[in-house]
Amino acid sequence: MESVFQLKEIQYKDILQVERMDIPLHKITCIIGESGSGKSTLLKMLNNLISPSKGEIFFKDESIQNMDSVELRRKVIMLGQNPVVFPSTIRDNFHIALGFSEKELLPDQKLEEYLRMVHLNKSLDQTVETLSGGEKQRLALARVFALDPEVLLLDEPSSALDEETETLIIEETVNYTKKYNKTLIMVTHAKLIAENYGENIVRISKGRYVMKEEK
């Protein structure tokens, strides 16, 4: 199976240690483990937001230490637990993100399609100040879809959502990943989500990669 990421002899301070890890291309990988085990640290290293203290990470067989970080993050986009939204309209949030990534602006019809994908029934002219925390999280996810990355890194993408909405959003994200042949790497606190949607499950315990389960 082709890998999108390979980690070799990785250590990050005293937080995380990985001797060897392969994350498959065009698959859904769920990262699970107890709170504070190093899951978010692992995710941040995959698009070089932080660098390992030792070891090497490869993206499609190229060491990310040798890659331009901006170019890497345009291909490998991370959505954290508390995503930044810009204090303007929903439309402007899409446009600003697309501008940062040097991508063409999309027509309103396409932007509205992304909003529907995350079940956010709002006008593009609405200001983000009127949105709840969960709605801002969904807007940020829709923005990631619009950026068309090769790899989506999602850190608890549904943490601010109720259980019913969480299921809808995870399903839409999985559908997007499969429809457009993306790679999804997702940290989740919910074991059921990992079991239902993860094609590859990475388990982190006390800062160590302890198990990988493939379906």
Results as ranks from 00 to 15, higher is better:
133 G>A: 11
120 L>N: 08
132 S>A: 07
33 G>W: 06
166 E>G: 03
62 E>R: 15
129 E>G: 05
4 V>Q: 00
32 I>C: 08
126 Q>Y: 01
193 I>W: 00
100 F>T: 12
176 Y>D: 08
108 D>V: 14
145 F>Q: 13
159 S>V: 04
140 A>D: 00
105 L>V: 05
101 S>R: 03
111 L>N: 01
73 R>K: 10
14 D>Q: 10
143 R>I: 14
213 E>A: 10
158 S>I: 12
108 D>H: 05
170 I>A: 01
148 D>F: 14
167 T>G: 02
49 L>V: 04
164 E>I: 15
213 E>M: 09
169 I>F: 01
22 D>L: 09
153 L>D: 10
103 K>Y: 00
34 E>N: 03
174 V>S: 06
193 I>F: 01
176 Y>A: 05
169 I>D: 03
105 L>W: 13
158 S>K: 05
64 I>M: 14
190 A>D: 11
50 I>K: 07
183 T>K: 01
86 F>H: 01
125 D>S: 08
95 H>W: 10
116 R>A: 09
190 A>L: 05
198 G>S: 06
81 Q>P: 08
75 K>T: 05
12 Y>E: 03
105 L>S: 03
54 K>W: 08
168 L>G: 02
87 P>C: 14
175 N>P: 01
184 L>Y: 02
56 E>I: 05
149 P>Y: 06
59 F>I: 03
148 D>A: 15
34 E>H: 06
31 I>S: 03
195 E>R: 08
154 L>H: 07
70 V>A: 04
39 K>W: 05
192 L>F: 07
192 L>Y: 11
159 S>D: 11
51 S>V: 14
215 K>C: 08
14 D>W: 04
114 Y>W: 04
177 T>M: 07
58 F>W: 13
123 S>T: 11
143 R>G: 01
5 F>D: 10
126 Q>G: 00
153 L>I: 11
2 E>Y: 13
59 F>H: 05
15 I>F: 07
119 H>F: 14
133 G>D: 04
152 L>I: 06
176 Y>H: 00
11 Q>W: 05
22 D>Q: 02
124 L>S: 05
80 G>H: 06
30 C>R: 07
151 V>G: 13
138 R>D: 00
129 E>S: 12
61 D>R: 13
178 K>S: 04
133 G>L: 14
118 V>A: 04
9 E>T: 12
2 E>C: 06
26 H>N: 15
75 K>E: 09
50 I>Y: 02
137 Q>S: 11
123 S>H: 07
211 M>A: 08
